[in-house]
Amino acid sequence: GKMTGIVKWFNADKGFGFITPDDGSKDVFVHFSAIQNDGYKSLDEGQKVSFTIESGAKGPAAGNVTSL
């Protein structure tokens, strides 16, 4: 299901970062391709987001990332 969290950091040049889930679980990798907006796909440190957990090739990653 949907989770919420805070963006820990995001490197716009490399197109990835990490989200710290509100439930205290392990930080989740986020790739820019998972960001659900029409414009420039980037996130800001400290931004609140909702997301799902998808299993990627390198382990769990955030999917369906939407800013709240």
Rank of each mutant, 00 (worst) to 15 (best):
V28E: 02
E45P: 15
D38V: 12
I19N: 00
G56C: 10
M3R: 14
D13V: 15
G17T: 00
Q36E: 13
I35V: 11
G17P: 00
G39M: 09
L43R: 00
G56L: 08
D23E: 11
S42W: 07
I35E: 03
K26A: 13
M3E: 10
S55Q: 12
G39A: 09
K48G: 09
G17L: 02
I35F: 06
S55F: 12
M3L: 11
W9R: 06
A61K: 15
F10Y: 09
T4L: 10
A12F: 06
A61E: 15
K2G: 05
G24P: 03
A12R: 14
A62V: 03
F29A: 06
V49T: 01
V30L: 08
A12W: 07
Q47R: 06
V49F: 00
P21K: 01
S67E: 13
K48V: 10
E45L: 11
L68D: 05
E54P: 02
H31T: 04
E45V: 12
P21M: 03
G46N: 07
P60W: 09
F18P: 01
K2F: 06
Q47V: 09
G59L: 04
F16N: 04
L68W: 10
V49R: 01
W9A: 08
S55N: 14
A57L: 14
D23H: 10
A62N: 01
L43V: 06
I6Y: 11
G24S: 08
P60E: 07
D27I: 02
N64S: 08
D23Y: 05
V28K: 03
N37M: 15
V7Q: 00
G56F: 06
K14L: 09
K41Y: 05
M3K: 15
G17Q: 01
A61V: 14
D22P: 02
D23V: 08
K8A: 10
G24D: 04
A34K: 12
S67I: 12
V28D: 02
H31Q: 06
F32R: 15
A12H: 13
T52M: 08
F29G: 04
G17C: 03
N64T: 03
P60L: 12
L68F: 12
Q47A: 09
I6A: 13
H31N: 06
S50D: 09
A57R: 15
T66D: 07
G46F: 04
T20F: 03
P21Q: 03
